[in-house]
Amino acid sequence: MSDDTILSKDHWLSIGEIANRSGVAASALRFYEDQGLIASRRTSGNQRQYQRSTLRRIAFVQAAQRVGLALAEIKSALDSLPDDRTPTRADWSKLSKTWRSRLDERISELERLRDDLDGCIGCGCLSLQRCNLYNKADRLSERGPGARILNVGIPGEL
């Protein structure tokens, strides 16, 4: 018999079992729980127990993080799943289709980075007129000398 045949949907797993089966550290599982991404119940000895279906949620979180989604976006997506039953393949499929445009954006960004990176590798200051990554048309020169991106912070805040 397989594990799925033996274990009912109401079967609860310890944090160690979930960590072992998911490949995610127990500390990360506690963090995911603090963020509202997964839920547990407590035993009389105050130990965490998770439903076996939590393994799917953990896999979803890991996949979403690889795509580049922020934890708030992941939580919002998970919140759209049904609470009264284990999500079905159709539920997961519907949810993952919303990633398609996000993936297309990431692919485009990575292709631009790949294509433009060789012109920027040696400059260091990121304020040359020819920098197509962060400083098109040398607009950062208006903010003064030096590595303006390093002084300002995230490139999206330009």
Rank of each mutant, 00 (worst) to 15 (best):
G68R: 05
L13H: 02
R130L: 10
L150E: 11
R66H: 11
Y50N: 02
V24S: 06
N46I: 07
E111D: 15
S101W: 01
G36P: 01
S76P: 00
I107H: 06
L158F: 12
R114M: 11
A90G: 08
L113G: 03
D118G: 11
P87L: 13
L95E: 03
C123T: 06
S80A: 15
N20T: 10
L95C: 08
S96F: 12
L126R: 09
H11T: 15
L95W: 02
R66V: 13
I15A: 14
D91P: 00
S141G: 07
F60D: 00
L113D: 02
L140D: 02
E109F: 10
A72M: 07
D115C: 09
L95V: 07
K75F: 05
A72H: 04
S127N: 07
Q49Y: 03
A39K: 09
L126A: 14
C120N: 03
V152R: 12
A19R: 00
R48V: 05
D34N: 14
R114V: 10
G23D: 03
F60I: 07
R114P: 00
D138H: 09
F60T: 05
D91H: 08
D116G: 08
S2W: 02
L128W: 01
R100D: 14
K9G: 12
S76W: 02
K97H: 12
S141K: 13
E17S: 12
S53P: 00
A77D: 04
R102C: 09
L133R: 02
